[in-house]
């Protein structure tokens, strides 16, 4: 119960809080990190596709509401990200572990999908060209989020 519900929920509150208060300070030219996405990717890898999906869906819904954003946009993108992270699920007891490179790769791909779908669904007012959509709105924020996910690895290693 604590491991699968309370801790993820508590960490989500912390991440949402960081996203609303600290992330704006780290934003460069409208490109900022996504702390919630890091959590979604982590839990997708840890508990599998279904958990990642449900976690992404709930986190997206809650964040859409508390941020005053467009409800549905983060829900869609985070659900997709959680589902994708679940493909890299590491079964308990297996030899594969959530090592640093694997984790960073998963975070990058999840962030890429998340940013891509968020850009598409969060507004009908802007029509992006291919370069804007893929490079500026997807790849750059994903790289930034991946870099900022490094502390998770250090924290995990210290905890292990």
């Amino acid at each position: 119960m604590t491991n699968k519900i309370l801790l993820p929920a508590g960490l989500f509150l912390v991440a949402a809080f960081l996203q609303l208060t600290i992330a704006p300070l780290l934003t460069l030219n409208s490109i900022g990190p996504d702390f919630i996405l890091i959590l979604v990717a982590y839990y997708g890898m840890k508990f599998g596709q279904r958990f990642g999906m449900i976690y992404g869906f709930s986190a997206g819904l809650f964040f859409d509401i508390v941020s005053g954003g467009m409800i549905g946009s983060s829900m869609f993108s985070k659900t997709t990200a959680g589902f994708t992270a679940g493909f890299f699920y590491v079964e308990p007891g297996s030899e594969l572990r959530i090592d640093s490179l694997r984790f960073l790769t998963v975070v990058f791909f999840c962030a890429l999908l998340d940013s891509f779908f968020y850009s598409i669904f969060s507004t009908v007012e802007i029509i992006f060209n291919f370069y804007q959509l893929v490079f500026i709105r997807s790849i750059l924020p994903s790289v930034y989020t991946t870099i900022l996910s490094l502390p998770v690895i250090f924290l995990r290693n210290r905890g292990a």
């Binding site: 596709q49 279904r50 999906m53 449900i54 869906f57 997206g60 467009m70 409800i71 549905g72 946009s73 829900m75 869609f76 659900t79 997709t80 589902f83 679940g86 669904f121």
Partner: peptide, 21 residues
């Protein structure tokens, strides 16, 4: 394919909420 069905349901819910903002 339970996970895929669940994914489709979640995505449909998200998309159906978008116009209700």
């Amino acid at each position: 394919n339970r996970n895929y069905f669940l994914l489709i349901i979640f995505l449909l819910i998200s998309l159906s909420i978008l116009p209700l903002n």
